[in-house]
Structures are given as C-alpha cells and as structure tokens.
C-alpha cells in the first residue's frame, strides 16, 4: 500500500521536475534527480511526472521499471555493488560474490537485517584489469579479495 505523499515532499518533487523540463527528453534526468534526493523513486512521484510531461502514469511506470538503477523502495544505508562480469569471474569474482552473499545471509538485491547494506550485482565497472571489482556508494574498489571485502562490509556496518 503506497504511503500518501505529504505536501512538502510532493512540492519538492515538483521543483525537481520543473528544473529539468527545459531539457530534450527530460524523463531520465528527472528520475535521476528524484532518486538522488530520496534514494528511490516514490510512487507518489509518478502522477506528478506524468502530468508535467503530458504522458500516462503507465508510461512513467514502464520507464521506471525498465531500468535496473531505479528503486521503488529505498536501499540500505550503503550499497555494495559486486561485478559479476567475465573479467572478474576470470579471477575469482563469482566465488567472492557467493561468499559475500552467504556471509550476509542475503540474495542479490537483498538488504541486511540491520538495514546497513544492500548488495547488488553490476555488470562491469570498467575495472577489468584490476578485478575482481566492487563499488561502495559510488566509490570504486579493485582487486577485492575476502579480506578487503570483510573490511568494506565492516566499514559499512553490515
């Protein structure tokens, strides 16, 4: 059941929308701006966007749900992305990912019980020559082994 939007939040969303309306093809920039501020794209934003762009709410939903990046609910306090692609697999990336998920007791996209860490797969960070690679809240890490991962997770409070 979606929460009804309180007035200040929808006001803020409207401001974010209007800031991007002058762009050609503004929908993705609008969604990025909303997600950056709120950590996800709240359901309540969809009718506001649809209204501003003169498209249907279904079309907005279609776009939000198509792209892996947009969240419908907030993530944990930190997001750890682990690369699953081939170059990382060539140097033990798959085992590292499996061990990490098992250790935290989550599946891909899952969040630890204390809400500290969400683990997501990513398909290539362009760090293929210093694999396995991961990204913690936008900060890249290379040659991640079990010890490095443990340290990253500790820092994130998992």
């Amino acid at each position: 059941m979606p929460q009804p939007q309180s007035e200040p939040i929808s006001d803020r969303i409207s401001v974010l929308i209007s800031e991007k309306l002058g762009l050609e093809g503004p929908l993705l920039p609008i969604l990025h701006a909303i997600q950056e501020e709120f950590g996800h794209v709240p359901q309540g934003a969809l009718p506001l966007i649809a209204d501003a762009l003169n498209i249907s709410k279904a079309e907005v939903h279609g776009v939000v749900s198509f792209y892996h990046d947009y969240r419908e609910v907030p993530a944990g306090r930190h997001v750890v992305k682990i690369c699953r692609a081939e170059a990382c697999q060539a140097v033990g990336g798959a085992a590292l990912a499996e061990a990490t998920l098992a250790k935290l007791g989550v599946e891909w996209h899952g969040t630890t019980k204390n809400g500290a860490v969400t683990v997501e797969p990513v398909y290539c960070l362009g760090l293929c020559a210093c694999a396995p690679a991961a990204m913690v809240d936008g900060k890249v890490v290379g040659r991640v082994d079990a010890a490095k991962m443990t340290k990253l997770l500790e820092e994130a409070g998992a």
Binding site: G25, V63, F66, Y67, H68, D69, Y123
Partner: peptide
C-alpha cells in the same frame, strides 16, 4: 553538447535503444 547518464541497462549500448533512452523512453 550535453552529458546524459544511463540507468543500468546494458541493452542501451545498442544504438537504437540508446536513442529511445535519451528520448526518455524504455530502452527498447
């Protein structure tokens, strides 16, 4: 020129789905 940011869809590396994405559509 302008910089635009993708949203995590590999298929948007295909030129026509990239164009759809730039237009604000699903990257089909």
């Amino acid at each position: 020129m302008e910089i635009r940011v993708g949203a995590g869809a590999y298929v948007c590396g295909e030129e026509t789905s990239l164009l759809n994405s730039l237009e604000g559509k699903r990257g089909i």
